[in-house]
Amino acid sequence: MTTPLTVGENTVDSLLRLDRMPHIWCQGCGIGPAVGCFTRAIESSGLDPDKIALVSGIGCAGRAAGYVKLDSFHTTHGRALPFATGLKLGNPELNLVIFSGDGDLVAIGGNHLIHSARRNMDMTVICINNFNYGMTGGQAGPTTPLDARSTTTPYGNFEYPFNVPYLVAASGATYVARWTVLHVRQLEWSIAEAMTKPGFSFIEVLAPCPTLYGRMNKEPKGLDTMHSYQERSVVRDGADPKDVAIDSDGPIVVGKFVDIERPTFWDQWKLLLDRAREKKK
């Protein structure tokens, strides 16, 4: 256990479980900066941390729930969204944040992802995308770019990956953005915006995985991936989500792609209550 350097002054420390530091993430892992952005976003958005609940699934990113000093739930693989749905409906005052990985949210939890977006559940999803399954040792998943190597695609990935922002936008999300962990300022601002916006918000965060994905794809150090983000990323706010697919060496389009208004599940539920009362009379 390490002691905080500046007790009470540093936003990050006051929202972390310091008795669990240092964390389990590898050298150069991109999840840490994303967690940092999330904690600073809580500060900058002025939200009451007591009313924020964080729900995670399984995987490297899923471990975030254990490191933040909030009501935090580390659930089963892929099921963070339905768990959070119950939590949100049980107490609509809670601000729900789902912090999990691409394998958890898009593969095993893919069905819950599209349905939560369809319902426009009032929650913010921070999806750490490192293009592979880190916790289990670097296997390919539905976000692994074509031709990329992984421990289960030793001859290169032959399956086409999801364009995640396109998937989520098509399913009905009202806020969709993508950043890399190099874009820390934008990411923090984007998380704050998403958390204060009603409806289903989704932020894809590209993060280096030097130990596994990077090592197998000519980026053995976190810095290599960060440099590739620096060279390849293009900020295009308002870009059509269908044009933002990622391949293994082309440009990475980042920015805020969708920011629209649509009634949330809760708005619709209140209408239903009126209808139910009407019918009873």
Partner: peptide, 19 residues
Amino acid sequence: MEDEIASMNAILGASWAGL
């Protein structure tokens, strides 16, 4: 919910919200 897996998780979540 979208399936029974989601249903089971949703009731766990709601229970942690106090219902």
